[in-house]
Amino acid sequence: MERTLANGNVVLVAHQFNPAIIDKHWLIKHGIVTEDDILSGAINIPHLSRINTKDFRLTVFPEQLQFSPLNPNKCSQEQIRNMLGGIVERLPETPYTAAGINFLWHLTPDVTMQVFTRSLFYQKRKVHEFFDTLDGKYGAYFSRDIFGTRLKLDIKPIIIKKEEASTETLQCSFNYHKDLISEDKVTEILETIQVWEEAKKTSFQIIERLKEEGGI
């Protein structure tokens, strides 16, 4: 069975960002990246800013800032603190309202998705019985408080299309959500970033459990 960390990122929500000011020149000016770090493909229009660097991709919409390390597996907490923390500290007046850490895992079983998800999630309950057919597939939603955040885990089968080929995989979407309620939003964001490693480790452990329990 193959498992892949397809994505890992930090999302900040504010009311609201001004994408127009966050461009590559702004990042260089504030010492967050150097000119050599910037890759091609930048976008800077009134409602959207997108910057590619050799370490991360930054996307800013009016409602949301998304910071995505290119390699979430290897990116350290310290690197995120320096890069994203640097951006946040230089925009202290932004009315931030929430911060979240996301990990997207894909589990591709050796057996069919029907068999795999049935072994993980099927229970002898009335609703489940309705889907108790040869083509029935299953998923799950879990949530709990952890690391000062609300962890929400969505699990469902998806089809990933790559050019002509399609692969069916079980998508496990982890969202560690933190509403920012204190006066000092910047500090609260930095504290949330500090759980990156633990959050990643926890998501990995859950994926390992799913692998074990779904192993046929």
Binding site: N7, N9, V11, L12, V13, H15, G41, I43, L48, R50, R57, T59, E63, Q64, Q66, S68, T97, A98, A99, G100, N102, L104, S173, N175, H177, K178, D179, L180
Partner: peptide, 18 residues
């Protein structure tokens, strides 16, 4: 809840320039 912090897919965001 103060807004959704789930992310948009980078794969799709990469299509933006095109």
């Amino acid at each position: 809840m103060s807004g959704i912090t789930q992310s948009l897919p980078e794969k799709e965001l990469d299509k933006l320039p095109t």
